[in-house]
């Protein structure tokens, strides 16, 4: 849960309640993100987002490299809260040949 996903700020807006919000692009998935904790963040900057909040700025090269990892590990949807609740039951082990040990005799 302490993972954070890097993304690019594509839009910044102040909402009616005065909260600094923005749209952040994560490898094609766009989400509304609260930018209140990074007042200097600009459109085009990269940031690490955790549960809908930008917590720290990131340089572009590091962000793209991290995003590649997230994509390859298949973690992007999960970390962005886009998993279907039905998926909360984890999938079977991806290691070929691995079987859960036999049950009670």
């Amino acid at each position: 849960m302490c993972l954070g996903v890097p993304g690019k700020v594509v839009e910044i807006s102040d909402t009616a309640d005065g909260l600094r919000m923005g749209k952040v692009d994560f490898d094609g998935i766009r989400k509304d993100v609260c930018l209140a904790y990074l007042p200097d963040l600009q459109v085009g900057d990269y940031t690490i987002v955790h549960v809908g909040f930008a917590i720290t700025k990131l340089d572009e090269a590091s962000a793209l490299e991290s995003l590649r990892m997230f994509r390859e590990l298949g973690l992007l949807a999960e970390e962005l809260g886009q998993s279907d609740p039905a998926d909360l039951v984890p999938p079977a082990c991806p290691i070929p040949g691995w079987q859960a040990p036999p049950g009670p005799a």
């Binding site: 849960m1 302490c2 954070g4 609260c34 904790y37 955790h50 809908g52 909040f53 917590i55």
Partner: peptide
């Protein structure tokens, strides 16, 4: 501490 700022907001 990573999640706390979101909950605080």
């Amino acid at each position: 501490e990573t999640t706390a700022p979101a909950n605080a907001m």
